[in-house]
Design a protein around this nucleic acid. Structure first.
Lengths: 253, 253
DNA sequence: GCGGTTCTGGTCACACTGACATTAAGATGA
DNA sequence: TCATCTTAATGTCAGTGTGACCAGAACCGC
């Protein structure tokens, strides 16, 4: 768990003239703020090797010859966060000649983690005092300078996330099994950076057929809100002929 | 012009255990049929080397260490067709371990070629008798068996094209500078495989602000149709932070 | 009980769209 | 010459989805 690879690291920057392939992942989750609003966050890894040593970078690593691209993304995602993604999609292949000191093709994925799982994991690490070295969560709206072209990569990932949230159901990937409509709406609001009308939001999302109402309610300081579950029969996002996201698993979860 | 590379060819299938990077491109254009309808077509390259020798494959080749990904796609596209793409976009990076006899990562692009330029090029080759060896155009609806996983790649490219045609202006990439609304509608119809109402189509596309009416008309067997030009101020497709498609060029065309 | 806040359901106007009717304008053939 | 055919272009109408907004329901804390 404590072993983490910062992507595009170079063993040997000058000698080799071959092209190497790295896989990195932009990992999104939500963090609850003190004022009870939510904020988009993502984990970064501090580089420990030569180019950009000490700088923050996307989690990732070299592609193993015997490893599928998506598996590499899942693996490094697990190594940095200890979790499994609720959504994982290829973002883009970056391969400009001058993006690193040697020729590196970075195949970048982006992922969503359930906010509750991240909170639990972080709390567990804090309790045990074994928080992973060199990994830190940053608010997506306020990032440090990043190594290589990772700033542009992240910008593009954010753009894709904001776009996709508008025409798919990926927002559910940040929430636990059961959630209120207000919580779901808050996900949209923190990703898009806008405020949505609660009544209209309810109408749309209820009418979409992706939610299953439960008989439970979330009780708070005000009128209790009904809890909903996500309809597992509906894909989080249409992927076309690339098929379902995790064909290796049974869909019984 | 006659030199063509079929993508993922292997010099040596067994010995090397390194990962190699290839760039392939799915090239779409339109062909006018005898019944005066239009058909989506694409060029394929016949493989001349060991794995899948003799089979049809996507145009492409190995990535040069000193070459950007998009440049490699442009280059092989030019080598197979002798033309420049009016639209070029990265499709996906395919990298499953078992997709070839050795480990090959294929970064696939897809492109649109103007139908008139393709027609002119094909006619010129026919006249000069120097038609490129091992290159043939196939209707997208009726393709032969392809080498490697290229059939799935092509299916995905078609899916992306059909999707994108619905929310962007890429259809213009298949047409010459001036065109009638009926011709533009025909592009949509042959890509989507549906028939569109001429009146409603006109309303939508006119209202979108991407067309500039000219004072010329196309005269045929019936009432002449006004010719339109594409509004160059509008991008064919929104690309987000990846920026404009060809930042190297001036936009004065 | 009362005020405050959120949840939930509803109304209304507006924009967009699909279906369809109608006129304009040229080509063709009797 | 002129009726007919076909496509171009404009217009109408009903149904749908959406943003803005209102109002009652339900609970908390005082």
């Amino acid at each position: 768990m404590t072993r983490t690879n910062a992507a595009p690291a170079l063993r040997d920057s000058a000698t080799s003239d071959t092209t190497r392939v790295a896989v990195s992942t932009v990992i999104f989750s939500l963090r609850r703020l003190s004022d009870d609003s939510a904020e988009l966050t993502l984990p970064l890894v501090r580089r420990t090797r030569d180019p950009f040593e000490g700088a923050w970078a996307l989690p990732g690593g070299w592609l193993d010859v015997t490893e599928n691209l998506e598996d590499a993304a899942s693996r490094t995602l697990g190594e940095t966060t200890g979790l499994r993604a609720s959504y994982l999609e290829q973002l883009y292949a970056f391969g400009d000649v001058d993006r690193s000191t040697s020729r590196v093709i970075s195949i970048v994925y982006w992922a969503l983690l359930r906010a509750d799982e991240v909170d639990a994991q972080v709390a567990a690490h804090a309790a045990a005092g074994d928080a992973p070295e060199n990994v830190e969560w940053f608010p997506a709206a306020n990032l440090p300078d990043l190594a290589f072209d990772h700033t542009q990569i992240l910008e593009y990932a954010l753009w894709r996330l904001r776009n996709k949230v508008g025409y798919s159901r990926i927002a559910h990937g940040l929430l636990p099994d059961a959630f209120t409509l207000a919580e779901l709406r808050e996900v949209y609001e923190s990703i898009l950076g806008v405020r949505l009308d609660p009544a209209n939001f309810r109408r749309q999302v209820e009418h979409s057929g992706t939610l299953i109402p439960t008989e439970s309610f979330r009780t708070g300081s005000h009128r209790p809100a009904r809890l909903y579950r996500y309809n597992q029969d509906v894909e989080l996002a249409e992927r076309g002929p690339l098929g379902p996201m995790f064909p290796h698993e049974s869909r019984t979860t």
